Simulated assay, not measured.
Amino acid sequence: MDIEVRAATDFDGVRALVGPKRPDANVCWCLSHRVTAKENASLHGPERGELVRRMCASERPPGVLAYDGDEPVGWAGVAPRADTQYARSRKIPRVDDLDVWTVWCLRVRPGHRGKGILPRLLDGAVDFAREHGAPAIEGYPVDNRGEKVDLTMAFVGFRSLFERAGFVRAADTDSVSGGFPRVVMRLDLR
């Protein structure tokens, strides 16, 4: 399998990974952590997709997509922490004043899981942040110690995945996902 990861400028690819089956549905579109709570609550049905469409066409797309040939098979939401809900989080602490970027959502399409796409996707998110001048990148995965995680909560990633990509534990958090504690994992890009 030849996986290529690139900026999420392909709206149809993003829709295939995080969009709804029905355009009027109020699904996340990976916006819950990306925009303010007020803006998130104000967006309904197709408005959510239209915001993502504009983000895909902007100078800084909302993340990266992994492709197997022409087929989008993976998604990672990545942006400056200051542009996400994590900038105001009471449960996930800031480590310092560095203008870090955040990768907050990792998703691989059913039928493509277990094929090594996730590590490539995380590497692509790191490259994307680096190309946009990020001094460091963080993730807030679960520390599940190898135990099974409910797939609906696995979008935050696993500590072991981040460690294999060179990230180090920078702090503990007060956040929990799927019954497991989350940790701040950081990779210096300087």
Rank of each mutant, 00 (worst) to 15 (best):
M1C: 12
E4W: 01
E4Y: 05
R6T: 03
A7H: 11
T9P: 04
D12Q: 06
V14W: 08
R15F: 14
L17V: 01
L17S: 01
L17W: 08
V18W: 03
V18I: 12
P20Y: 14
K21L: 15
R22A: 14
R22I: 12
P23V: 12
P23A: 10
D24S: 15
D24F: 13
N26C: 09
N26T: 03
V27F: 10
C28I: 07
C30A: 11
C30L: 03
H33Q: 12
H33A: 15
R34I: 06
T36V: 12
T36I: 08
N40H: 12
A41V: 01
S42L: 10
S42T: 07
R48G: 02
G49D: 13
L51Y: 06
L51D: 03
R53G: 07
R53K: 13
R54V: 05
S58L: 10
R60P: 05
R60T: 13
P61Y: 02
P61M: 05
P61G: 06
G63S: 07
G63Q: 02
L65M: 05
A66T: 02
D68V: 02
D70R: 06
P72C: 13
V73W: 02
G74S: 01
V78W: 13
P80M: 07
R81F: 04
A82F: 01
Q85W: 00
Q85F: 02
A87F: 02
A87I: 05
S89V: 00
K91P: 00
K91W: 12
I92N: 09
P93W: 04
V95S: 01
D96W: 01
D96M: 00
D97K: 01
L98R: 15
D99Q: 12
D99M: 04
D99H: 15
D99C: 03
W101R: 05
V103R: 07
V103K: 02
R109W: 04
R109K: 14
R109V: 03
R109A: 15
P110F: 12
P110D: 10
H112W: 15
H112Y: 15
H112L: 08
H112Q: 06
R113K: 08
G114K: 04
G114T: 04
K115R: 15
L118W: 10
R120M: 02
R120H: 10
L121N: 07
L121S: 05
L122E: 06
L122M: 14
L122A: 09
L122G: 01
L122D: 04
D123H: 15
V126D: 01
V126R: 14
D127M: 07
D127K: 15
F128E: 04
A129H: 11
R130Q: 09
E131P: 02
E131Y: 01
H132V: 04
G133K: 04
A134L: 07
A136I: 08
E138T: 04
G139M: 13
N144I: 02
R145F: 13
E147V: 00
K148N: 11
V149G: 03
V156D: 07
R159S: 10
R159M: 08
E163A: 11
R164P: 03
G166Q: 07
G166E: 03
F167A: 00
A171C: 02
D172H: 06
T173Y: 10
S175Y: 12
S175A: 15
S175R: 12
S177L: 11
S177R: 11
G178H: 03
G178C: 14
G179H: 11
P181V: 03
R182V: 05
V183I: 11
M185A: 10
R186K: 10
L187Y: 10
D188L: 05
